[in-house]
Amino acid sequence: MITVDGQCLAAFVFGTTVGVLVQRSRWCNTAALRDAMLFKSYRNTKALLVAMMILTVGFTAMISFGNGNPMRFDVGINQFIGLFLFGIGMVFAGACTVSSWVKTGEGNIGALWALLFLIVGLFLSSLMWSFTYWPLAGQTMTGRPNAAGLQFGWADALTLQRDTGVPAVVFGIIQAAALYALYRRILKRERATQGEGKTASAPAPTPVAPAAPALAKIATEQALGAPAALPTLGE
């Protein structure tokens, strides 16, 4: 059993590694969604999918052998609503939880400001927390369905393995295959887009109205093969 100090040290070493790798690769979860939706640019989306595939097989394999520390986490409507708000927020701020820390480390005051107001939002909403009523926790998150608390109970690879007797890794491989199918589809779409770019004799038309200079500039850069990024957080 690892001590609390050991846990904190392991977490710090892991976090530092993440900080270095994300800083060097410019990976951003916000861009993984936003750029795919806005520019059909999948540089960050593909990386996210690869990580999800590795982790799905890795985590479920460990769960199959009784190892690892999966989150004992109840499924609830609050997760949908909370992440919906989060999704809007991360596009507005131009950074997710990872990139806000990484950009702060690079000297980005906008990212630091986003973190500060994330803390403010967290604290203000914590004042509305109730032990017995939604929004949640405590008596509502018991591992069993609870209609009043809009909770469906606990269901993950571990419960699936327990209930079916089939090793969790089998389900993990199925999920990883579904993620891989999505990855292949993105590659196919990218190849199709590149093919269109090569056959076009004239410069690629910008998919936005002339009244939108910022988007038009980015779209032109896209057509020329430059990396996609919106000018957020002072960059």
Binding site: T60, L85, I88, M90, I119, L122
Partner: peptide, 26 residues
């Protein structure tokens, strides 16, 4: 954006990382 992210995390008890790289792989 920062405020919305904070409210979202508090309400759901998870963030984007736990969503894509924690809960979903589990």
């Amino acid at each position: 954006g920062g405020l919305l992210m904070g409210i979202g995390i508090r309400l759901s008890f998870v963030c984007n990382v736990s969503t894509f790289l924690g809960l979903t792989p589990e």
